[in-house]
Design a protein around this nucleic acid. Structure first.
Length: 814
RNA sequence: GCGGAUGUGGUGAAAUUGGUAUACACGCCAGACUUAGGAUCUGGUGCCUCACGGCGUGGAGGUUCAAGUCCUCUCAUCCGCACCA
């Protein structure tokens, strides 16, 4: 058949639409597969990353459908977020209009690729229904204290009057107007992810089977658990008086209690309450106060780059074990939001403390030395060693003594063992319009109360002014006005909307809803969750995947689901590159999917993208490679003329076939076998496609029409997940599509009378032999000796090794 | 600095358990058909060598009858985190 992708692709896309071909089966006794590619943001047009993402997911979905699974393969739109609002500011388009027009256009693009998505379960997260369900969860979270409000330090742009996310601050300036960002303390809503850190860490264990190890590691590091000692450092009486008796002591945390006798100073973060107290009460000289204020102005990001700097506060604390007095400093390298924002400093055994002590000429006191060898006093010794100058702990191993010292502190009730996490509570407030409003009400007498559930959703007003200055909701007086849900008095709505990561933290649950107009039920979740294959970019390794895991656990505890982890298997796809770097508009190295499809068709695009590299690896774009995929599909189409139309798999007497015919059948079933392996464990679609090509090459060397027909019966089924349009067309014409289903691997084609083996001498390949499959070891050795006689002459054979079906190795001497 | 990944022909890449390294494709070369070919088909194609043969999976060692695969060290590139006490 002449290959005309434009014609057949349109034809089958219409067929699939008209026949609702990819909806789920309501029979829940069937075994299920939930195949999900991460949903897209409706930016305007699809790019190659999308094509790769959905081609991988679609291959899984189609494969499992052929193998009689009940397959859920949904898609939707992650449609809240800043770009819509930025477009509104720039082009005066309403965010809603911009978003939904983009969705319509991109749906057309995705449609032209022939992906087998469920159409009935589709939604956009900016749909009011989705917001309604989400607001119910948020109200429950607020009631249970999982969502709370507190003051936090935030990036604030004084020109645009809005909070910015960390990634929107570039070199300390607003990404849009270039204004210097200030740290502003304001009220924010948070989700208590800190209640779940230990579980999020522990449950990574059950994901190790199905998730890439690097993602597990990244999450472990991000959660950042550390165990150590927390204790108070008490001020001397003199210092207490100097601080006007406002402070008795402050907390420090250390993971190195073994170095406790080496503490020579203590350091506070510039934002520490004691520092602020001293500034406020004018307890510092002008010069010191100025320096500290300058430190406070530097953002966290720049501080990490800056040189170590400090100011002596001229106050002192008492060492908890030795009773000696220790000076207190302010240091720019002490983190405000980790631990208590204060540290004990051990310059002899910590690089940072060493640098600081050297710069300011502070005491350095070593208390650990190497087991053998001398202590090098020109730098900090941070390895494990033996304690000295440490009173009762002298001679102990520094690693094992940590527990003992912590026990000692606990026994004396001057400190305790604590676990610290790097992961902080999730700040979810955004002072933005295009997001889901927090369903909360501020009432003068009742405080902050949730909206009544029957009044949900709290939707967005359409008539807003979006000019990039401040939160449009804040300026919308009539929208803000409401009644208190508790006492009925006049009240105002909360104007913060939520982080869009909230929407993507549960969208995969709403897809399982058997009635898409209602929120998912426990039964839906019990049948469909977890996601069997989750496909997406590695860039979501931390945020999205961690938030989704957290949200799932919260919904479990709120009684919505019986589920601990949402994603069983995760496949992180590699980037699509051109000329060695990531495709991007600014580099001008993009390839437009639309024009590719127009020129070669969707099947070629899908095939190339799966053939050029394994899915987890980076993919280097190559126009000639695309051409190659197209040529293969054209040949695949044209050669189908060798097959004969029929409705069942032809029966073939294998023993009556010629060598080439036997070989062709073997290659065909090898391709099928490889396809089963690839989908169940390896995901290397490139090798699966190579197998189909090999089978085609082998079919071409013979002309038995039964072998051809059987070959097409099998290969069309194997290729269908990759190039569905062509395969449906050929299957329809040849086999009434009876072959697009589970096909058993025919073992008989793998049996052979003889097998090729290699002969090597001293491990060096020398000859090839052909032996009978039933030949015993002696016969094989005899044949091998004959073949290798040239290299065995006048040599003594010391050892003979026969690896059945593979090779014979002679070890010789002389 | 810490953590992770990758390194194989001219190129993208195969090699599933330690067992004939380079499957499949791109490119290139030659030939056929052709007025012509950037179409199609056939054959060839790791490197050195006229050949015999030798060398060859980033590099150096090691284990083994046998190493791309296992071990030790090392180099390069990429990614993530980065003063987390």
């Amino acid at each position: 058949m002449q290959y005309n992708p434009q014609l057949i692709e349109k034809k089958w896309q219409n067929f699939w639409n008209d026949n609702r071909s990819f909806e789920t089966d309501s029979d829940t006794t069937k075994e299920k597969k939930y195949i999900l590619s991460m949903f897209p943001y409706p930016s305007g047009r699809i790019h190659m990353g999308h094509v790769r993402n959905y081609s991988i997911g679609d291959a899984f979905a189609r494969y499992y459908r052929q193998n009689n699974y009940n397959v859920l393969h949904p898609i939707g739109w992650d449609s809240f977020g800043m770009p819509a609002e930025n477009a509104a500011i720039k082009n005066k388009v309403h965010p809603k209009k911009w978003t939904y027009e983009n969705i319509a256009y991109m749906e057309k693009e995705l449609g032209s690729l022939g992906f087998s998505f469920s159409q009935e379960r589709k939604f956009a997260t900016s749909d009011e229904l989705y917001t309604k369900f989400e607001q119910e969860f948020l109200i429950d979270m607020f009631d249970k204290g999982i969502m709370y409000r507190k003051k936090g330090h935030l990036n604030w742009c004084p020109n645009d009057l809005t909070v910015l996310a960390n990634e929107q601050v570039i070199d300390g300036k607003c990404w849009r107007c270039d204004t210097e960002i200030v740290q502003k303390e304001m009220f924010q809503y948070y989700l208590k992810i800190s209640d779940y850190t230990q579980e999020l860490l522990d449950d990574l264990e059950q994901l190790k089977e199905g998730w890439p190890s690097q993602v597990i590691t990244m999450q472990e590091n991000w959660i950042g658990k550390s165990t150590g000692l927390e204790f108070d450092l008490h001020f001397s009486d003199e210092s207490k008086a100097k601080l006007k008796n406002e402070f008795e002591s402050f907390d420090v945390f250390t993971t190195r209690p073994d170095t406790i006798y080496g503490v020579t100073y203590s350091a506070l973060a510039p934002e520490h309450p004691i520092v602020n107290h001293m500034l406020k009460e004018n307890l510092l000289d002008d010069d010191s106060a100025t320096k500290i204020k300058a430190m406070q102005r530097v953002g966290a990001r720049d501080r990490a780059q800056a040189e170590k700097e400090g100011v002596a506060l001229n106050i002192e604390v008492i060492h908890p074990l030795t009773g000696k007095s220790i000076p207190v400093w302010v240091a720019n390298f002490v983190l405000t939001d980790y631990g208590s924002g204060a540290v004990m400093a051990v310059p002899a055994h910590d690089d940072r403390d060493f640098d600081f002590a050297t710069k300011y000429n502070l005491d350095i006191k070593a208390v650990i030395k190497p087991k053998d060898g001398e202590l090098d006093s020109s730098k900090a010794y941070t390895e494990v060693g033996v304690l000295f100058d440490s009173e009762e702990f002298n001679g102990e191993n520094s690693a094992t003594v940590r527990q003992k010292i912590m026990d000692h502190f606990e026994a004396k009730e001057i400190g305790k063992k604590v676990i610290n996490f790097r992961l902080k509570d999730w700040g979810i407030s955004r002072q933005r319009y295009w997001g889901a409003p927090l369903p909360l009400i501020h009432c003068d007498s009742c405080g902050i109360v949730p909206e009544k559930k029957e009044n949900l959703p709290v939707g967005l007003p359409d008539d807003v002014v979006i000019d990039g200055e401040g939160n449009p909701l804040e300026k919308h007086e009539s929208w803000k006005k409401c009644k208190c849900s508790k006492c009925g008095a006049d009240a105002t709505r909360e104007t913060d909307t939520v982080d869009t990561f909230i929407q993507s933290s549960w969208y995969f649950l709403q897809y399982v809803a058997s009635n898409p107009k209602k929120v998912f039920t426990k039964e839906d979740v019990a049948y469909w969750m977890g996601v069997d294959h989750y496909v997406g970019g590695i860039e979501h390794a931390i945020l999205h995947l961690l938030y989704s895991r957290f949200f799932t656990k919260v919904l479990r505890d709120l009684g919505y689901v019986d589920l601990d982890e949402p994603f069983k298997k995760l496949l992180t796809q590699g980037m699509v590159l051109k000329d060695g770097s990531k495709m991007s508009k600014s580099k001008g190295n993009t390839v437009d999917p639309d024009s590719l499809i127009e020129k070669y068709g969707a099947d070629t695009a899908r095939m190339f993208i799966l053939f050029a590299a394994p899915p987890t690896q980076e993919l280097e774009w190559n126009d000639q490679g695309v051409e190659g995929s197209y040529k293969f599909l054209r040949r695949f189409s044209e050669k189908s003329e060798n097959a004969v139309a029929q409705e069942t798999l032809p029966k073939i007497d294998h023993s009556a076939l010629s060598k080439d015919e036997k070989f062709a059948r073997k290659k065909v079933y090898e391709a099928l076998q490889r396809s089963n392996e690839v989908f169940s464990e390896r995901y290397t679609f490139n090798t699966m496609i190579a197998g189909v090509m090999e089978a085609m090459n082998a079919l071409n060397t013979q002309s038995n029409s039964d072998v051809w027909s059987e070959g097409y019966w099998v290969l069309l089924s194997v290729m269908e997940p990759i190039a569905p349009h062509l395969c449906w067309e050929l299957s329809e014409n040849l086999f009434k599509r009876n072959n697009l289903s589970k096909i058993e691997v025919l073992e008989e084609v793998f049996s052979a009378d003889s097998v090729a083996m290699g002969v090597s001498i001293n491990g060096k390949a020398r000859a090839q032999i052909e032996v009978g499959v039933n030949d015993d070891k002696e016969t094989i050795l005899a044949i091998a000796k004959e073949a290798g006689s040239k290299w065995l002459e006048n040599k003594e054979i010391i050892k003979e090794i026969v690896v059945p079906n593979k090779l014979v190795n002679f070890v010789v001497k002389g």
